[in-house]
Design a protein around this nucleic acid. Sequence first.
DNA 1: GGATTAATCACCCTATTAGGGTGACTATTT
DNA 2: AAATAGTCACCCTAATAGGGTGATTAATCC
Lengths: 209, 209
Amino acid sequence: MERNIRIVMIEDDEIIREGYSLLISQVDGYSVVRSYSSFDEAVKTIGEDSPDVILLDIELPGTNGIAAIPKLKKILPSAHILILTVYESEKQIFEALANGASGYLTKNTPAFKIIESIKEVREGGGPMSVNIARMVIKSFQRNQESPLSKRETQILEQIADGKSRSQIAKELFIDLETVRSHIKNIYLKLDVNSRADAIRLAKENKLIK
Amino acid sequence: MERNIRIVMIEDDEIIREGYSLLISQVDGYSVVRSYSSFDEAVKTIGEDSPDVILLDIELPGTNGIAAIPKLKKILPSAHILILTVYESEKQIFEALANGASGYLTKNTPAFKIIESIKEVREGGGPMSVNIARMVIKSFQRNQESPLSKRETQILEQIADGKSRSQIAKELFIDLETVRSHIKNIYLKLDVNSRADAIRLAKENKLIK
DNA sequence: GGATTAATCACCCTATTAGGGTGACTATTT
DNA sequence: AAATAGTCACCCTAATAGGGTGATTAATCC
C-alpha cells in the first residue's frame, strides 16, 4: 500500500487552517501532518514533519511567505511548495515562482481543486488558478504594436544582452556605422539617450523579452 | 438567449479535425463554424467566420502554427488562440505564448478539458496542460545554488539592465572602485571577461532574471 | 507617383567606459 | 586559522558610447 501524501500548512488564519486541514485529511491518501500559524514557528520543527507538499500563505506575521520559500527549500529541498493566498499582485506571483514555488492558488479555490493541485504538483505539474495562469501567460506576450522595426528590435535585444556595437555589427554582418545608425533611431523613437533607459523602457512596454 | 461560442479549427490531420469538431459541436453553446487544414487556406476566409476562439495546431503544412499566431491576431484581434499540439518543446511553448497565444494544450487533453479551456479562455483565463504549466513555472525559477553572492547578483542584474559602472555605484551608494571590484569577482567566478558573456552565462544558468 | 519608412553606410567629435593588474582593510562565517 | 563578502585605491590603455549631419537604395503606403 502506498503511504499517505504528507502535507503541512502554514497559514495564520485559524479558521482557514482548521477548515482545510479537516477537509484534506478526510480524503483518502492525504494527511495534514501538522499546521503552523507562521513561518517563524514552523522553521523549528518542520524538518521533522518531512512533508511532501507545503501549503503556504503569503500574508504571514513575521517572515512573509515569499521570503519563507527559499528558506523552506533549504530545509526541505524535495518538498513542493504550493502558494495559497488571497493576493494576486503580479509582483508577488512572479517573486513566489522565482523563489521556488511549484504552484500558485488563490483562496477562492474550492477544496477539491486544492486536492487535485496537490496531486498534480507531486506528478510534476504546475497548478495555478485560472486568473494566475492568465497573468503568467500575459507576462510572456510581447507588444504587438511596437514602434520599432524588426531590425531595431533585434539590435535592442542584443544591447540588452550586453553586447557592444562592434560585437553586434560582427554578428549581423553589417557595418559598425549601421549599428550606430539603428541605435540612434531606436533612441529617437523611444525618446531616450542611453542603453539603460532604452532597455528599461523596452522591457516595461514588452518590446523585447 | 446567448449566442453560441464560435470556434474555428486549424489542424491538418483530418481525423482529429473531424473528431474534435463533432465532439465540440455536440456541446450546448459551442459551434465549430469551420475548420481548415492549413493556415494558408484559412487566411483567405477566416475573417468572415468571426470566431471567438481559434484552435490552432503547430505542425501545419506551409506556414506553421507559431508564425500564424501574429497573422491571425492581425486579422482577428479579439479572437483567443488556443494551441492544440503534440509538441512540447520549451522553445515552441514560449514562442507561441510570446506571439500571442492565450493557452497551450497538448493533444492528450480529453475533449471535456478542451471545452473547459475554451470557456476558460473566454473568461480571461490562461488554460495550460499540466506538463506545460510545469515548464512555464520552471522558467521563472532561479538557480538556488548560485556561485554569486547577493551583492554580486544584484550588480550583475544591473549590468544586464545596461547600466554603467558609475550608474550602479550611484544607485547603490558605493564607490565606483567597489563596483569594479565586484565585477572583477563576478567575471572570475563565471570565468568570463566581458559583460555580454557574463549576462549570457548568468541567464543560461538562471542566476539572474 | 510622391511620401514615408526601413536598412544600409560615412565621417566629424570627446568624455566616459571597460577591462586587466595588484593590493588592502574589515566583518562574518566556517 | 582560513575563507568569503563587501568595501575602497591607484596603476594602465584601447575601445566604447553618444552627439552631429549627412547619403543611398528598396520597399511600402496612400
